[in-house]
Amino acid sequence: MSLNERITVLVSGYKANPKRLIEDLIHFIFLILGLITVGCVLIITIYLIISGLPAIIEIGPIEFLFGTRWASTASEPAFGILPFILTSIYGTAGAIIIGVPIGFFVAVYLAKMAPRKFKETMQLCVGVLAGIPSVIYGLVGMSVLVPAIRAIFDVPDGASLFAAIIVLSVMILPSVINVSLSALEAVPHEYEEASLSLGATSIETYFRVTVPAARSGIFTAIVLGIGRAIGEAMAIMMVAGNVANMPGLFKSVRFLTTAVASEMSYSSGLQREALFSIALVLFFFIMLINAVLNFLKTRSQKI
């Protein structure tokens, strides 16, 4: 059937039944609405690549990614973002090392041992912790944590990678707890009953049967935490000191996110383009994490 014929058939069909035209139109509108998210993802990706690539090419990819000196406003500017990349990686790793065990044990307790009322209260607590705006974490970090670190560790300035790690580990707690909790709750009770009937204590059952069975959900929680930590900007901008140093636990540092946020307002020319390139690198990391999340999801669906 040629295109013309098809259209004639379609039109005559609609003439016979005008209601169908409206239904099909509405279907079409909803299809467009559904595809908006896809459009948004495409626009974001394309925009970041278009605005981020030129500076990387101009500076040289190796020099940009592995250069250790960032001096964007110097008379002889240097654009090496290795300090930011390493800081982001170290900061995230630190937050995971502190935050995940705490979140994991709380999730096990809430899923298996807590009385119902207490569990509901705790879930509300975790919800509030998740809802607190990140700038408030930054504010409390600035006025409590930073002076405390200066006093306890006797360093000249408390605004450091360490302060950022503490703030980040608090901020990833809610997602780690919530996701592990639902994974642990989804484990079939038969597993636990079998283990209990074989003579294992309840604690042994929870940690040796339930937790391994909920493994992929707990991995998802960790990866989600990594995503949260690597993307956080405002809170750590307020506590990390914001100097482009190579990372050290008590050194003032800059993350990928804070590098973008702190210079954007007064940047121009190549410096501005380089900031977009940093955003592109950050986006690349996030996409990597998304890919891992997706892999985990499809694998857990198969099981």
């Binding site: 993802v41 690597i230 993307g231 900007a233 946020a261 996030i286 994490i289 998304n290 997706n294």
Partner: peptide, 18 residues
């Protein structure tokens, strides 16, 4: 569509800002 929506929810707010 679901993949796109999950991707959107994983993108950090600073990138949305940019």
């Amino acid at each position: 569509i679901e993949f796109a929506s999950e991707t959107l929810s994983g993108i950090p707010s600073i990138i949305y800002g940019l």
